[in-house]
Design a protein around this nucleic acid. Sequence first.
RNA 1: GCUGCUAUAGUGUAGUCCGGCCAAUCAUGCGGGCCUUUCACGCCCGCGACUGGGGUUCGAAUCCCCAUAGCAGCACCA
Length: 486
Amino acid sequence: MFAALSEKHEHKKVLPDLEGAENGVVMRFAPNPSGPLHIGHARAAALNDAYIKQYGGRYILRIEDTDPKRVDPEAYEMVVEDLKWLGLAITDTVTQSDRLHLYYLLCTQLIERNGAYVCTCDNEQFKELKNKKTACPCREQSVETNLVLWDKMLTHGFKEGEASVRIKTDLNNPDPAMRDFPAFRILDVPAHPKVIAHVYPLMNFSVVADDHLLGVTHVIRGKDHIANTRRQRYIYDHFGWKVPVYRHYGRMGIEGVVLSTSQMRLGINDGTYTGWDDIRLGTLRALARRGISPEAVKNAMLAIGIGDTDISFSWDNLYSENKKIVDPVANRYFFVPEPVTVQIEGAQPHTAHAMLHPSDTARGTRTLEFTGTVLIPKSEVSPDITMLRLKDLFNVKISWDNGMPSFTYAGDSLADARAAKAHIVQWLPAQATIPCTILTQEGEMVGACEPAVRSELGKVIQFERVGFVKIDAVGDAGVVAYYTHK
RNA sequence: GCUGCUAUAGUGUAGUCCGGCCAAUCAUGCGGGCCUUUCACGCCCGCGACUGGGGUUCGAAUCCCCAUAGCAGCACCA
């Protein structure tokens, strides 16, 4: 008995169980293709992914492009790329603009079931009636009339704004948002980039149609959809379909990056941002560029879970997850910020062997040839510092004369350096160094690094005493790196 | 305003359904120490929370009520 109890305590589930998931699940991630994916999307994407991996089943990517105003033709590809980067087990991909005929068909059936009607009321007028819990005249039309009007909608008999299809719900529902919400509308402009159409389903209709058609069993989405879930239930009831299991997680506040697609686009167009992967943006491609690994993103999202309380996203937690992944694999190099060139007196040429990774000796070393002149960080040259240890090399004594420092060799003994509490600093041979700029979200850090860093293009490395960076570009002019985190 | 939802340390999270294993878990952060030729990693120690007030009960983080706060929705967006 006690064993059972303690076991219960030790069995920490990563995520809470989903009801009715024992025999596998069908879940979906359903983004609007208006831009690349950002951290907010990653939560839904990762949560669904984790459950599908836990229970087995299918993972449907459903591109929800039923509003031509909010479709960026380039986003289709970006979304797929971003999900690929995240490493999700997507099994099916559907695009709603390919499926308009299905929605039309189901709409006809729904009208035949008397679950929907074509409303030709002025929008303001309808809203007024709705708020008074009063049916608009269109609601009383016969099924036959509705079918005629529906056909008229589809055959350009109405112009934009002149007619819509509404779902019959409960006009006495205390929440006005529930009362006879729209299911289809006419949009003459803009043209849809993927399909010729002018009658488009609204999200609540197309989502129900697809969730049912695709056999979706569980839906995990943000709580901004709670009202939609209630609306969608009316459609399920009209058709007599089985309703999926829903989970709505709370709002996630994310500070420090730009997330609004329109704001990002604006900034890119006016040159404020370099592109969708500008590191000031919260897109997944920006995180990737900064050296955040997809596993870290997923782990951080799973740690947040599906709670329905509002939370604030913690960059610290993400960085911590990323460090766990990156630290064991990142090679170490010297970066000297704001370098000053100093001549060391009294030292013979030395060859320093510095480990590529301190806890993985098998990875080998890099060699730095000392021939007399080195670069060291400017911050290490100040009157209150009298001794330094050049890491993996030797000790240096600094003496000050009239405010001018001079540097002399002070032995190889590490013990001496320790005894003197000397800083162990990164350095570079003056004859073997390349310029290096580290771009951070706040600005840039200029310095120099080991030439060998050029072979780490695209990888995350650690500049000792500085932090992890991703090597973004290498060239004759030097190296550009993005600061990942400490 | 109307309709709902939520409320555990700086942050995230477990526990809340079925009240006692909870003087509240784990992670992160912060402070200190050890290790170390990085201010990294690892290890050890510490800091820090049940929104407030009533009620029910032998007993409440857990149930009920009120208050407060936050959030969501109230689009011919998703």
